[in-house]
Design a protein around this nucleic acid. Structure first.
Lengths: 337, 337
DNA sequence: TTGTAGGCGTTATCAC
DNA sequence: GTGATAACGCCTACAA
């Protein structure tokens, strides 16, 4: 590997001057600049990034913590983040926790060891008290996941309101026994959805029966099992609010296998407006999140914090959801027909 | 930020001894080891990774180049790679090219600037001649995408054979006008599939009509458009081989909207065995790739190359596919019923 | 068993 | 305009 020293020698100049050329600085005659460029070319020189990092104390890299990238919501989120970040000259490193507290901390450690300049958390499994000490080492931003009291910037949707609207919709479609399905790690986001769900239920005088709650629904497979669980143990349930389109799809798929009719026998609401929610038969009523916008805003804040360190903001940006009504909940119109 | 020097001072010892403790080396009395650990704790010391990288000339990071992470096939691939890599203490950085030649080269450049120790290419948009010079800077492995003549290790399926089998299956199901759909960048992988497709067709005396080829099918939306394209321009087509489950899903969805029957009016084959292929109505016949195994093997080779540099192998590992027969192609049995 | 000192490749500071 | 020189934080001969 050629170093800056080699270039300097070949060009018959000093490292300093070469460095100036590399970094597009002034105070170099055109003639020497040419000579140096030539030398760099001849040697196939490229600046060593480890050395630059050590010297500049910056890595131009951002860590994004998420549960698993195969969850399409996070896939889309990180895709958008990567695009935006690269516009600013930053790299993204993907940190999958698989909901492990240890892994999450390992990844936060990247901030301490200066392998990344900042961390974006799209999920959170450790307590905030455990995470807080890491803030000293660099900016941390919460995107998607959030908390009550902000000590860091947060970018997210109002999940409580979203869940509220979705549940209300189920009620309006004459569901009288609505099950609640969530999954993944216990989190504020999940609690917010739960609150929204309860808010809606409390609007109605009904719900005599005991509430059916399922907290282990993450993917399609879980959805399939959940259907059978409901069928066996809670045949009275006629509506389900799920925290993900994948779970909703699993339920609907298995319902089809068992010759249940959706939405007549069971209305289903998903979350995230993934492709799959449109493709299912029947298509799934779901909640759309402005993923790109949230990703862009998050990167924007991060870049700002990195460019103006010390100005630690803790602003919160809340985005609007959009309830997409589809056939998986269309009970009234169907019965009229 | 505390440095090794600070720790040494606080413990009343030298940097060397501290370094020994950090790296779990022998020749340190237990007592001093304790003292140093204490000091590290008190100062909240963590080794600076940029310095380590510069010193050791290693980054413990691997770049994975792919078109887009929201394509589930690549999502699963990178998920498995990340898991395996982290077992070996390596990080993965995600490099989405979006099929841009420039981006691909930018990412390969990471190898030159020593930001990563090695590169895994799961797709390839530039010519091999363009890529070859980068091999000097570190190991490059092809996973999924491949070439005729190997100068680097390759891990992949036999796409020709897979396409052959899938097409043969369509023929056996009495499809007489089979359209071929592929997408993304022109690549060897695509060409191999095309060959397999032709191999199968050449087995039959039929196919009087001109071949219908569509080369712009990547995702669900494309699939939807392709359906309409076929409906308008090639109503004689009664079978489609697609290079992706997403495209297949799009076709099937739109066929449903137009009241076409699948597979009676049109049989559809997908690729990759994504969740969606099982969930569609009807479920989609598809080709399963051993994603986890390929990912694991790729990381294994990479780690080996990194641990024993110089021994540049160019071994090829070919994995078997598995054709999953589902209802989207079940024409014969249906007509018998 | 411990410490000294040099260097990994850059860039910033200060002289010239 | 240009060039010495000193860091950045760490590891590792080599010496003691």
């Amino acid at each position: 590997m050629a170093t800056i020293e080699d270039v300097a020698k070949l060009a018959g100049l000093s490292r300093t001057t070469v460095s100036r050329v590399i970094n597009d600085q002034p105070y170099v005659t055109d003639e020497k600049r040419q000579r140096i460029m030539q030398a760099m070319n001849d040697l196939g020189y490229v600046p060593n990034s480890s050395a630059r990092r050590l010297r500049s104390q910056r890595t131009d890299t951002i860590a994004v913590i998420l549960p698993r990238i195969t969850n399409p919501f996070f896939g889309h989120l990180i895709e958008s983040m990567e695009e935006k970040a690269s516009e600013w000259g930053y790299q993204i490193i993907v940190c999958q926790t698989h909901d492990s507290k240890k892994k999450e901390l390992d990844y936060l450690q990247l901030l301490r060891t200066k392998q990344v300049d900042g961390v974006i958390m799209t999920s959170k499994v450790n307590d905030w008290e455990t995470i807080e000490p890491y803030l000293e080492s660099g900016p941390v931003i919460l995107c998607n996941e959030y908390m009550e009291s902000a000590s860091v910037p947060m970018v997210h949707m109002n999940h409580r309101k979203a869940a509220y609207e979705a549940t209300l919709h189920l009620i309006e479609e004459d569901c009288s026994n609505i099950a609640y399905v969530c999954g993944g790690a216990e989190s504020h986001l999940t609690r917010e959805r739960w609150r929204g769900f309860k808010d809606a239920l409390s609007m109605t005088a009904s719900s005599s029966k005991e509430q059916v709650i399922i907290d282990w629904g993450i993917d399609v497979k879980d959805g399939q099992e959940i259907f059978h669980y409901l069928k066996e143990n809670h045949p009275e349930v006629d509506g389900v609010f799920t925290g993900s389109d994948e779970v909703a799809a699993g339920i609907i798929y298995e319902a089809g296998q068992s010759e249940w009719r959706i939405p007549e026998d069971l209305a289903v609401v998903g979350f995230d407006n993934q492709m799959i929610s449109m493709l299912m038969v029947p298509p799934v009523t779901t909640i759309e999140q402005p993923v790109k916008e949230m990703a862009a805003k998050t990167i924007e804040i991060m870049v700002q914090e990195l460019h103006h360190p010390g100005v630690r903001s803790s602003q919160t940006y809340i985005f609007d959801h959009h309830l997409l009504l589809r056939d998986s909940t269309k009970r009234k119109q169907l019965s009229v027909q």
